[in-house]
Amino acid sequence: MDASFFTAAVVAGTPLLYAILGEVITEKAGNLNLGVEGMMLIGAVVGFKVALITQNPWLSLGGAMIAGGIAALIYALLTVSLRANQVVTGLTLTIFGTGFSSFMGKNLMGEVVPDNIKLAFADFPLPLLSHIPVLGQVFFNQGILVYGGYIATILAGLYLYNTQIGLNLRAVGENTAAADAAGIKVSLYKYIHIIIGGVLCGLAGAYLSLVYIPSWQENVTAGRGWIAVALVIFCKWNPYRVLVGAFLFGGLDIIGFRLQKYSFYISQYLIDMLPYLVTIIILIVVSARKSISGLPPANLGDSYFREER
């Protein structure tokens, strides 16, 4: 197994990266959005449709991101303003998103992404960085959306841990009542960050439909949204760890084909179980040790009522 496997792992992990980042931000605000799969699918179909109509790569991405944001807005409206149960709302979003994407995608079957868009997202080496032995080939000879993933991760980390707004956001998720008492506009923070989460999930979906498999396919996400939800925990809600988690599981996803060459045989399906098993182990260990660094935001999943404060 040479560097080409790792290069492919980075590519396979990029949609996961965006989706996990999006959900991390949403959960930091205290909302559990199980609609990731739905938002990714909505982003995928809208992105593809805009691509066919406009033939413009950036408009396509923009369309996907806006669509993801609107889907998240529906969730936010229901859970933040109307105090609906977050788990059920999120699940509904996934059901709706799956149906929406399948429905809109009917006429897109067999269509291929326009060439200029393929070109815009194609691999190009970064000067200097791509000459680093091995690492250069794996990380710095990729498409622009992969580089975007690195940037998004760093930005998210800086935002959460090095800015006042980021601190406020974490407060909202950890102790909503105290944040409210301190004057932070809880609802506004939740809305904005839930929508940002949706935007990133829409982008993840667009990556799948426009770059990863450049022709329309039913159910293009194939469960990646749920893996992303699991990996949020694996990455302990920390953007920097998301890089590791996304690429690791991107690699595990495709390792089966590479292993077929060798005589020992691990069933791909047992390998497929890994993200979920690992998440469970982390869940258990963290709750047993009650270590602060790995705990979810304390008010995750709660609807906030100022009146009941």
Binding site: F96, T98, G99, F103
Partner: peptide
């Protein structure tokens, strides 16, 4: 498409949740 039924289910649930 079959997916129309899913869209319907999702929409009904959104409104009832709201």
């Amino acid at each position: 498409p079959q997916s129309a039924a899913q869209i319907l289910q999702g929409a009904i649930l959104f409104f009832v949740l709201g």
